[in-house]
Nucleic acid binder design. Structure first.
Lengths: 150, 150
DNA sequence: ATTTGTGCAAATCGTTTGCATCTGA
DNA sequence: TCAGATGCAAACGATTTGCACAAAT
């Protein structure tokens, strides 16, 4: 009854909520393909992360997962649309994707180009102005820019 | 003693503070060249603006000011360094430059890709977390993302 | 059998750079 | 004069796209 194979690429339990990756993708209307499952695994099995497409691709390559950069981009955007991820805009150039989709804000370490979550408990935005006629507030992003002291 | 010429491109009074554009550039350590003066004029003589390099270049061209896109980029960055302008990051792709350098935050109208100032009187960010060891807060940016209602 | 995803390379977009030529002090 | 600016075109980095091939339902 030997039932192990090398590329069993997780079809069983996993991470956060009760769903396994396979189902999370299905629920998002995305076919659970090899590369999507692998990328999802890289993204969601290590706590909150803030990755760029380039970085994730590199990680995949190192992990021996055959996937093209174009597919990484596609996948990240699909995950973003599906709400599995959240794109964070800090500075024009690279886009970062945050695996933490809950309500929270960010530190941006200027010289390192690195994003870190600010504990949700912190930061209170008060006194928000009302949105102009016919518009509504989609989201409020706070970015605390940090620089090396001295 | 005829002393008027067509391209007298402002050397006299101007805008905001007491300084004319010529002096504002000089004070910033920038030579008041034709194109820098012209661009400064476009930028600072119409109240607060949020422009992209491309847009400003187009404006200049329309106004009959001979200037290359590269120079517009250079100029915007120099103005930014000099504190005459403030670069605003809303979404990775285009960079916007805000002529309002005072402490304030922004609305970002998602479908129009447009930035609008939030009156400084509004928005209070409280409960800010302390910066990690050896770091200090350079700035806190709040972006209120607006979308069309319904 | 269909539909959807993937890889590759070429295309695009915003932005930067190298370098010869001009211009302001 | 001559450091500093400008224009152009080529170079660039991040991202997207077109299309033939492969995999999922």
């Amino acid at each position: 009854m030997l039932m192990s194979s090398v590329d069993e690429t997780m079809t069983t339990s996993n991470d956060s909520d009760g769903l396994n990756l396979d189902d999370r993708l299905r629920d998002a209307g995305l076919r659970p393909t090899r590369q999507r499952l692998s990328l999802a695994h890289l993204l969601f099995s290590k706590g909150n992360r803030h990755v760029s497409a380039e970085a994730l691709h590199e990680e995949a390559v190192v992990a021996g997962i055959p996937v093209s950069l174009a597919t990484v981009y596609n996948t990240l955007h699909q995950f973003n649309e599906a709400g599995l991820l959240r794109a964070v805009a800090v500075e024009s150039s690279k886009t970062y994707f945050d695996t933490n989709t809950s309500d929270h804000h960010h530190f941006f370490i200027e010289n390192e180009n690195r994003i870190v979550d600010v504990p949700a408990s912190h930061i209170t935005v008060a006194d928000l102005p009302e949105a102009p006629e016919g518009m509504e507030i989609a989201r409020v992003d706070v970015i605390v820019r940090l620089r090396q002291k001295d």
